[in-house]
Design a protein around this nucleic acid. Structure first.
Length: 557
RNA sequence: GCGCCUGUAGCUCAGUCCGGAUAGAGCAACGGACUUCUAAUCCGUAGGCCGCAGGUUCGAAUCCUGCCGGGCGCACCA
């Protein structure tokens, strides 16, 4: 079921080099264990072969011997049938050139694997809980959230492809102050709709969406709330507003193609007394103390800058307290590994949450935080101003409506999460060469067109003989196709969606080059069949990789 | 002040974790390629003290130290 040609190949090469090293070390003092693991890499320069190893240079340092001479002895002990050429180069590199047999084999296997091509068992079914988005349901999702949303979803998909059992979860902060404020704001706007003068407090939510909610409230309850006691009416407004907000958030995410396995309610933790319980637990463990009327968590014990309040002097729990209970709950549900995707403004919370994990008796590394740097929207090269305070922000929905789901998802995926991201709206909308999304999708559409053109030939595609593919363009494309599972594997290990996006772009590029140089359907029937096979493999991989990112693979454009 | 992210081609960014050979891509600029499966494509040219300064190493964009610039944080808020 799992097929990873490049991974297998590299394992073979490393094993052969290790064997050679063993031979060479036999009559020397040092043991194998004193050397770092053998590595091979794809050299930048094509004339340096398919793979290169710095093994001789690494060994030379320890042995005090000439690296080039060592490389020669290593080569003498290298025994592999897939090697076409081996040579020593530069300061002592061993350059390995492979014969094409592995590639010929790879093409058939890719077609055979089809939709499953790319999957590996790297994660061994590890149960991973990935929590992302988790914004307060007090306002619509804005652009800042959307990057984290896409990154979380794509990382989840990548990890699933690599054999992890990923569970996507959204943590709803439906308890506490800010929800009361949301309700209060909606209630005020509701009263306003009946002509009452209202005074919005400084902390009220003033966005237009609150007025929308108030209108809905009016539609449903008419004058009813006006006649109720204020606290009762505010409560109804609060619950109503919360539901409306969640509905909205869910819709927005769905339009982005993001669906969660679970929506976890903070309120449930409060109602089931879980916060109290976990506070007592930490107290029993000796990690909670009282000071100035509040209860403090001794996070400094585990490397945090300062201790943190869990129960305020007024008796109410802090956000952290709920988070402690939540993370304990995650672990109790049997997840082996937790990943939280946070915006850059939350990076300061990493240490305290790691401390929480340790204090609860778990490994600090069982919790992993992916920090996603901020997004700046650019329109006509200029920064689009945004301010949370004034309620002036561009929503996730607006971006989606403006650039479309495919472009939005690809753009958010294509940059390293460590880097700030300038989202160029004009570029994302452009249906041209400048836009990487269309570049990739166009490759897929072109292949579909070739298949249309192939007519009856398509039925005989299976007979295609990959050994007829000899041009550089064909070989390069095929090599890239063979690399896909390994690329996904690395991206999964590094939780790096941008690597997958880059691979998709590179693959599309290799196809376009091939397309311009090699005509698929020609008089030469045998060659046509071979190329048809190659092109079909390219289509499969393009579709698979786009699916991981959540971008569509159009039949025509 | 402290912590995290960041500084690479005119612009936007890979490469840095795990050090390798002549530092890459896209866009923008310039010059070419459509009687042939989609020119939303391809080919070529030009473009770089890899922020600066030391250090480690046979070898540094990559590791270490210091400095400079940009972003984000440093609550009994969530």
């Amino acid at each position: 079921m799992y097929y990873n040609p490049v991974g297998q190949l590299e394992d073979k090469l490393i094993a052969a080099l290790e064997k050679a090293r063993k031979q060479v070390l036999q009559d020397r003092e040092l043991k194998e264990s004193e050397f770092p693991p053998v590595e091979v890499e794809v050299p930048r320069e094509k004339s340096h072969g398919d793979y290169a190893s710095n093994l001789a240079m690494v060994m030379a340092g320890r042995l005090g011997e000439n690296p080039r001479r060592l490389a020669e002895s290593l080569i003498d002990n290298l025994d592999l049938e897939i090697l076409e050429k081996v040579e020593v180069a530069g300061p002592g590199f061993i350059n390995l050139t492979l014969n094409k047999s592995w590639l010929v084999e790879a093409l058939d296997k890719i077609l055979e694997a089809g939709r499953d091509y790319g999957r590996t068992n790297q994660g061994k079914g590890q149960r991973v809980q990935l929590e992302f988005v988790s914004t307060n349901p007090t306002g619509p999702l804005h652009v800042g959230h959307s990057r984290g949303a896409v990154v979380g979803d794509v990382v989840a998909s990548i990890m699933e492809s690599a054999g992890y059992d990923v569970y996507r979860e959204y943590y709803i902060n439906d308890a506490g102050n800010q929800i009361d404020l949301l309700g209060e704001s909606a209630y005020l706007r509701y009263q306003e709709l009946f002509g009452r003068d209202i005074i919005m407090s400084e902390n009220s939510y003033r966005g237009g969406y609150i007025i929308d909610i108030a209108r809905e409230l009016k539609k449903q309850y008419h004058r009813e709330l006006l006649e109720l006691p204020e606290d009762k009416a505010a409560e109804i407004a609060r619950e109503f507003a919360l539901e409306e907000m969640l509905k909205l958030i869910r819709q927005d995410l769905k339009k982005f193609g993001i669906v969660f396995d679970n929506w976890f309610s903070e309120r449930a933790l409060h109602e089931n007394n879980k916060i109290q319980e976990v506070t007592v637990e930490l107290q029993d463990r000796g990690y909670v103390y009282e000071k100035e009327g509040a209860l403090w968590f001794k996070s400094t014990e585990f490397g945090d800058d300062k201790d943190r309040v869990v129960i305020k002097s007024d008796g109410s729990p802090t956000y952290l307290a709920a988070d402690i209970a939540y993370h304990k709950n995650k672990m109790e549900r049997g997840f082996e590994h937790l990943i939280n995707v946070w915006g850059a403004d939350h990076h300061g919370y990493i240490e305290r949450m790691k401390a929480v994990m340790e204090a609860l008796g778990y490994k600090r590394d069982a919790l992993e935080i992916i920090i996603v740097q901020i997004v700046t929207l650019l329109r006509e090269g200029k920064k689009v101003p945004m301010s949370k305070r004034s309620g002036e922000f561009v929503t996730m929905r607006e971006v989606l409506e403006e650039v479309g789901r495919d472009a939005a998802r690809y753009f958010y995926s294509m940059r390293s999460t460590d880097s700030h991201f300038d989202f160029d709206l004009e570029l994302a909308k452009k249906q041209s060469t400048e836009n990487p999304v269309y570049y990739i999708q166009y490759a897929h559409a072109r292949i579909m067109s070739i298949k249309d053109n192939a007519g009856k030939l398509l039925e005989e595609m299976e007979k295609g003989d990959a050994s007829l593919l000899k041009t550089e363009e064909e070989t390069e494309l095929l090599k890239l196709l063979a690399r896909y599972p390994e690329e996904l594997k690395i991206a999964a290990e590094r939780r790096a969606c941008h690597l997958v996006a880059a691979y998709a772009h590179e693959l599309a590029g290799a196809f376009h080059v091939f397309y311009n140089k090699c005509r698929v359907i020609t008089e030469d029937r045998e060659l046509s069949l071979a190329r048809l096979k190659l092109v079909e493999a390219a289509r499969i991989v393009l579709r698979n990789v786009l699916e991981v990112i959540g971008v569509s693979a159009p039949e025509q454009m």
